Amino acid sequence: METSFMLRRAFQALLPATLLLTACSKDDVPAAPAPDQGRVLISHAAAAANTQVTAFVNDQQVGQLNYGQTSSYLNVNAGTPTLRINNGAQQVATQPLTVAKDQNYSVFAFSPTATVGSVNLLTVIDDLTVPALGTAKVRLVHLGVSATSPVRLSIPPATPTGAPNDLTTDVAFGAASPFVAVNAGPLNLAVYNTGAPRTQVVAVGEGTGSGTGTRNFEAGKIYTVVVRGIAGSGVPTAQQIQAVIISNN
């Protein structure tokens, strides 16, 4: 009897360990942690390659864009992935990206010249920190082929002989300004040359490319003004110089 009692006690002592081993079967191995990621926005502003392009990140297709279209922000694993732009089956541009955890980026496909099919890539870091109370943020990206360079994003003068109120410093072709703060409300912005006399290169207006009207810059919002197209005579209407607005948040 005593032996039977001791065996029973030993079995009871082993039972919790047995259950624990059963619970820790291979089916319950913890899932691998999610990879660190950043976010990348892609914009097709290559006026000399104004057909649909396909974007790939590390050979994985992430979207197709017509000329003038911009993607939403895409989640991309942190590291140094390669962005590739194809026109049909033909690769037209490729560039390694440096993507940091929780950082945001914009990549602009643009034409460095008016040569048909020419495409380069401009990558900029997007500071999406919320603007101060009652303000918005805006920046200028200059991708206008053969247009005046450098240029500035400005508020036009109130009188014909007045000077524009510059919002950004000089922005060369193929470059972007930092974001700057503007008071929230309706604005009719324009892009001006930097020499004398100060003349308007292109009006921003409502930001659709028409160059007319005003845009209501909402408090807390972040915007990018993109100058794109080709300057010169004989350029088809859809590819002429224009300024458009992209919302970043």
Rank of each mutant, 00 (worst) to 15 (best):
M6N: 14
R9K: 14
R9H: 11
A10H: 09
Q12N: 14
Q12S: 12
A13V: 09
A13D: 06
L14Q: 06
L14Y: 02
P16Y: 03
A17E: 05
L20W: 12
T22G: 13
S25N: 15
K26N: 13
D27P: 06
D27Y: 13
V29Q: 10
P30H: 05
P30E: 05
A31H: 12
A32L: 14
A34Q: 09
S43V: 06
H44A: 05
A45V: 01
A45C: 09
T51Y: 14
T51I: 14
Q52R: 13
Q52N: 11
F56H: 12
F56S: 10
V57A: 13
V57M: 14
N58F: 14
N58G: 10
N58W: 15
Q61H: 03
V62C: 06
Q64G: 00
Q64L: 05
N66V: 04
Y67K: 04
S71K: 05
S72K: 10
Y73P: 09
A78Y: 06
A78G: 07
T80H: 14
T80Q: 15
R84E: 10
G88W: 11
G88M: 07
A89L: 12
A93D: 01
T94K: 09
Q95N: 06
L97V: 04
L97C: 04
D102R: 13
D102K: 12
D102W: 13
S106N: 01
V107Q: 00
F108G: 00
F108C: 01
F108M: 00
A109C: 11
F110I: 09
A114C: 10
A114M: 12
A114R: 14
T115D: 15
V116Q: 15
V116D: 14
V116C: 04
G117A: 08
L122I: 00
T123K: 11
T123N: 08
V124F: 07
D127T: 03
T129S: 10
V130R: 08
P131Y: 04
P131G: 07
R139T: 02
V141G: 00
H142I: 01
G144V: 02
G144A: 04
V145I: 12
S146M: 13
S149I: 10
S149Q: 07
V151W: 03
L153V: 10
L153E: 10
S154Q: 08
I155Q: 07
P157E: 06
T161R: 13
T161N: 14
G162Y: 03
A163Y: 07
N165P: 03
D166E: 06
L167M: 07
A176H: 00
P186E: 07
A190S: 06
A190P: 04
V191A: 07
Y192H: 10
N193P: 12
N193F: 03
A196T: 15
A196I: 14
A196N: 15
P197E: 11
R198L: 15
R198N: 15
T199E: 15
T199C: 12
Q200H: 09
Q200Y: 11
V201K: 11
A203Q: 11
V204S: 00
E206R: 13
E206Y: 00
T208V: 03
G213E: 02
R215G: 00
G220K: 05
I222H: 08
Y223W: 08
T224K: 01
V226A: 00
V227H: 10
R228L: 01
S233F: 03
S233E: 07
S233Q: 09
G234M: 03
V235E: 02
Q240N: 04
I241E: 09
Q242T: 08
A243R: 01
A243G: 01
V244T: 02
V244R: 02
I246N: 02
S247I: 05
N248Y: 01
N248Q: 06
